[in-house]
């Protein structure tokens, strides 16, 4: 199965240099786990050097739709990606002007479903399953149907390590493309954030007591004082499993 992966240079938070984005690397890794036919696509104005990290991290061949700066990447991408049953991209670009909207717009343009924040995809009995990341470490499994656009969560398993040899061997193929002008960006002042109101006003110590002190239905916490370390660890493990915080 041919899979398309979308990548874009990230901006390094310290130096501002272009580098690979974590979510895009995770998308690349997921695609390579699923298939040996992975096409890597980039649309935009960045030069080849900005994409070098992706070559070094395992993208053997990058198709670049070269656009002038300030042009919209959506329609040229949609055109190029029509024939792929599965399109993977990072949930959002690593810094820069990325809005995080591209996966949604692309899915809309291609007329497909979007599966956001995927950690893993697998296929069993002709049925696709996706593991999705939700806030606070919660995971859930979804059934999925191709064709599909999936955005990959930055915490999913990353691509192979950076290698100079791969960088040397990797190829970037540029094709000129045209896109509409980006809509004018309108800057407006941030709305005043609502001040956080504490749910209860008791002290931290008192809340801790409330959480751990047993009895009278006052608390959901358990204090384990009996048993050896294995038994105590078992209680913690049970708790984590119950709340789906670990999956083994």
């Amino acid at each position: 199965m041919k899979i398309a992966v979308l990548i874009a240079p990230a901006v390094h938070p310290v130096s501002g240099r272009p580098c690979a984005g974590e979510a895009d690397l995770a998308a690349l890794a997921l695609a390579q786990r699923l298939s040996s036919q992975v096409d890597v696509w980039y649309a935009g104005a960045a030069d080849d050097a900005a994409l070098a990290d992706y070559l070094a991290r395992g993208a053997t061949h990058i198709h670049t739709l070269a656009l002038a700066a300030g042009r919209e990447v959506l329609s040229p991408l949609a055109e190029a990606l029509q024939d792929y049953a599965l399109v993977l991209c990072g949930a959002r670009a690593g810094g820069g002007d990325g809005s995080g909207l591209l996966p949604y717009q692309l899915a809309e343009q291609l007329g497909r479903a979007l599966l956001p924040d995927v950690l893993d995809l697998s296929k069993s009995d002709q049925q696709w399953q996706a593991l999705q990341a939700l806030p606070k470490g919660v995971r859930r499994t979804l059934a999925a149907k191709l064709p599909l656009v999936a955005s990959v969560h930055a915490r999913a398993a990353s691509a192979v390590g950076w290698s100079y040899a791969r960088l040397q061997q990797g190829k970037i193929q540029r094709k000129a493309a045209t896109g509409a002008a980006l809509p004018q960006v309108v800057l407006e002042p941030a709305r005043r954030a609502r001040a956080l109101v504490a749910a209860s006003k008791v002290s931290g110590h008192a809340r801790m007591q409330g959480a751990i002190a047993g009895g009278e239905g006052k608390s959901a916490g358990i204090v384990v004082k009996q048993g050896d370390s294995v038994e105590k660890a078992q209680v913690v493990l049970d708790y984590l499993r119950q709340h789906q915080l670990v999956d083994f």
Partner: peptide
Amino acid sequence: TLSRGEVPGKGSEALANLRNTDTVGGYPL
């Protein structure tokens, strides 16, 4: 390192920092 890109532990992070920031710890110059 050069061919396989398999540097264990924090080694690969140190190398990435050097590439991206020219410092081992990822500090601003």
